[in-house]
Simulated assay, not measured.
Amino acid sequence: MTTTTERGRPVGELLRYWRRTRGMSQLDLSIETGVSARHLSFVETGRSRPSPELILRLADQLDMPLAERNTVLLAGGYAPAYPARELNDPELAPIRAAARQILDGHSPYPALLIDQHWHLVEANAAVALFTTGAEPHLLAPPVNVLRLSLHPDGMARRILNLPEWRAHLLARLRQQAVATGDPALSDLHEELRGYPSGNDRTAPVSDAASRVVIPLRYRHGDQELSFFSTTTLFGTPLDVTVSGLAVEAFFPADQATTATLHALGTPAAGLG
């Protein structure tokens, strides 16, 4: 996995980078971890070599992604602490099975499993509602669901509140890029920012959900469907791959959308 904290940089520089990224002073980190500020200074400047236990204690307090913790451990001359298995690894079979159960159980509403870079891993059949009509180049693996959503050849031409939904997705992606320090996410953010933003004159809606969350207003044939989304993460992951997985589930935001989706049933699968 490529990260902002370039391989080859000293362990102290990496720890200082993440401390500053999290907006903490050496004193703040010292108080939270019980490590003296003097010792932290020595570690960051290379005058003292941190133990693997100290690296992991600091990484935990700094909420560093698991992949970054491995990078810092390697920089310190230690073995990585967290495996990064392939999704088809037998040890991840229970994770895949759990995700599949969530996806299938969510029908007839759309739901999909994505990785840390927003690539599609699996989807239920109802996601075909969103992918129908998208150009083939956006559906060729690996499918990036944010690119599919905002590209003018994808879902964007059917999103009725595109400026609002686009701003929501870009803000979320930007926050994720900053939190993880992952340049692939920063690059994706820059790419998506260059896509057309749509017409800002979006007609207001009166459904209750639109007053508490940003809805996705989507044109399906001659109907307007309204959704809100939720994100489910896997708790207490100890594997780099699992730590990046998330289930994105869409729920109807009004009764008309609920009725339409149940009338449609489960469409033919378009992805997954």
Rank of each mutant, 00 (worst) to 15 (best):
P141M: 10
T131K: 01
N124H: 02
A125Q: 05
Y109T: 11
M155F: 07
E122H: 10
L139W: 07
L129C: 07
A140D: 13
P136A: 07
P136F: 14
S149H: 08
H106Y: 11
A134P: 06
L112D: 05
W118M: 08
Y109V: 13
A140P: 00
L138P: 01
T132A: 15
V145M: 09
P108N: 10
F130W: 15
P141N: 03
V143H: 14
P110N: 14
G154E: 09
N124R: 03
F130L: 15
Y109F: 15
V127G: 01
L129V: 15
N144P: 01
P142K: 00
L138G: 08
R147E: 11
T131E: 01
N144W: 13
M155Y: 02
L139R: 01
P142C: 00
V143Q: 10
H137S: 04
N144A: 09
H117K: 01
V127M: 10
V145D: 02
D153W: 05
A125D: 14
E122G: 06
M155K: 00
I114K: 04
H151D: 15
T131Q: 02
A125E: 09
E135K: 03
Q116G: 15
R158P: 04
I114H: 03
V145I: 15
L146R: 02
L113W: 00
T132L: 07
H151Q: 11
A156F: 04
S149C: 10
S107P: 00
L150Q: 01
V145P: 00
V121F: 02
L112Y: 14
L138M: 13
P136C: 02
R147M: 08
L146S: 05
A134T: 09
L139V: 10
D115N: 14
T131L: 08
E135Y: 10
A125I: 11
I114W: 05
G133D: 07
A134Y: 07
R158F: 14
A156I: 11
V143I: 15
G133A: 06
I159N: 05
G154I: 08
L120S: 05
L150K: 04
A126L: 04
R158Q: 06
M155E: 06
Y109R: 07
P136W: 06
T131G: 13
A126Y: 04
P110R: 11
S149K: 01
A156L: 09
L139Q: 07
L139Y: 07
I159L: 07
R147A: 15
A125C: 08
H151P: 04
P141R: 06
T131V: 15
D115Q: 05
D153T: 07
H151W: 02
H151L: 08
H106P: 12
T132Y: 08
E122V: 02
L120R: 00
I114C: 03
R157T: 13
P108A: 08
L113H: 03
E122T: 13
R147T: 14
L146F: 12
A134V: 15
P110M: 12
R157A: 11
L146E: 05
G154P: 03
L150C: 06
F130T: 13
A126T: 10
R157F: 03
P152C: 04
V121E: 01
G154V: 12
H137A: 09
A140Q: 12
A125S: 10
G154M: 06
F130A: 11
N144D: 12
L146Q: 00
A140C: 09
L129E: 05
P108S: 13
A128E: 04
L120N: 02
P136H: 01
A111T: 05
P141Y: 04
Q116S: 15
P152S: 12
W118T: 08
